[in-house]
Design a protein around this nucleic acid. Sequence first.
DNA 1: AGCTCCATGTAAGTCGTTACATGATTCA
DNA 2: TGAATCATGTAACGACTTACATGGAGCT
Lengths: 210, 210
Amino acid sequence: MSLRHALLALIESGPFTGYDLMQKFEHTIEYVWRASHSQIYPELRKLEEAGLISPEVLQRSENSRSTKVAYHLTDAGRAELTRWVEEIGTQPPVREPQYLKALYLEFSTPQNAKAQFEAHRVHFQQLRDGYRAHLQDVENARTELMRRRLARSPQSEHEAIKSFKAHVYHGLIARSEAEIEWAEEGIKMLDAMAASSSDPDYWNTVIHPG
Amino acid sequence: MSLRHALLALIESGPFTGYDLMQKFEHTIEYVWRASHSQIYPELRKLEEAGLISPEVLQRSENSRSTKVAYHLTDAGRAELTRWVEEIGTQPPVREPQYLKALYLEFSTPQNAKAQFEAHRVHFQQLRDGYRAHLQDVENARTELMRRRLARSPQSEHEAIKSFKAHVYHGLIARSEAEIEWAEEGIKMLDAMAASSSDPDYWNTVIHPG
DNA sequence: AGCTCCATGTAAGTCGTTACATGATTCA
DNA sequence: TGAATCATGTAACGACTTACATGGAGCT
């Protein structure tokens, strides 16, 4: 049920069209929740039917007959947003494909195990770099979304609002770094095994061929 | 596609019935991948149809007409297991409901924000404790699964196999601890805001009522 | 005239959840 | 005899993915 609330939270800084929201997802929320346009458009219709957002029909441009729809948060929508923020959510079940695979690396070679850890490291380094860049943008209110949100709240709250967001990205950075470290420790583990192995073809020998 | 491979990996230590597999999930794999019996039974049928596992019909007990089905890994199944372990998987998109919510804590009170972080901390403390206990079980080969797996591989590989599994649980513990720390820092952040606030009703004042 | 955004959808299929069901065996 | 455990399913629904589609607007 997170998509609907992500949309409500974004629209609070609106009005936005479906297309706008798609872009916000790509550039900001994506770091925390991914969604594609084929999910967003139908969900907006549902939110409208539920009375949580209200559509405003706009011209696509000056002297143009064709239109686009921008959505506003309704009072009911704001109430639902608050309800969600106050609800203690149940955590999703653990489902970690890479860790699952790491449990069974003995079905292949140390060479492959190393490649798996390498890929893991690279992935989380990239993620971390994205988070870092975005953290800078948030702290300096460089995103349109941050500026809109701050414009609607009293100056005295600006620091608090920025702190919440910065705290999230700091957490995600810390997590990525834990993943990087895990991958590096995996590689060290393999190197140590290689060093203590008598097999000259250690790296290419399947550990448990069955 | 992880469920099918989790099942193949478990059945490698088999033969197991659907019910057995359900239990293994609950007590071991659950720490990395959750699955319910209503998913497992149909998936087993698919694996059988694909020729990756083969059924063996057994009596449910001595002098009993009713039967149960235990599955064995076929050669094709083992090949698929190896293929999966060697494949560099794409990481699932980030989708973090708690972090999403934490981005929007300003829509409620500091009191609520604290409760959210508290719940987060408790959840990951429990997870971590489960991982720690399971890590002990794995390192001392106290689970049936570990004993079965070790029984099928040469003594010389036992340390490597245990190390891979221990490394996974160490990683999950580290991650849980990062989450705990994140929650605690969130609470500290709120306390600091309270200390520097002039509002006597700080904890119950909605930060951004809109 | 063609390319790139802008803007908005549908359809098929996979994966997963919750709830509903049923019957056998074992043990107190 | 009744409860717990063993054993195995189906059905409805929701979330998400990938692919397929379409048309306007603006710029070169």
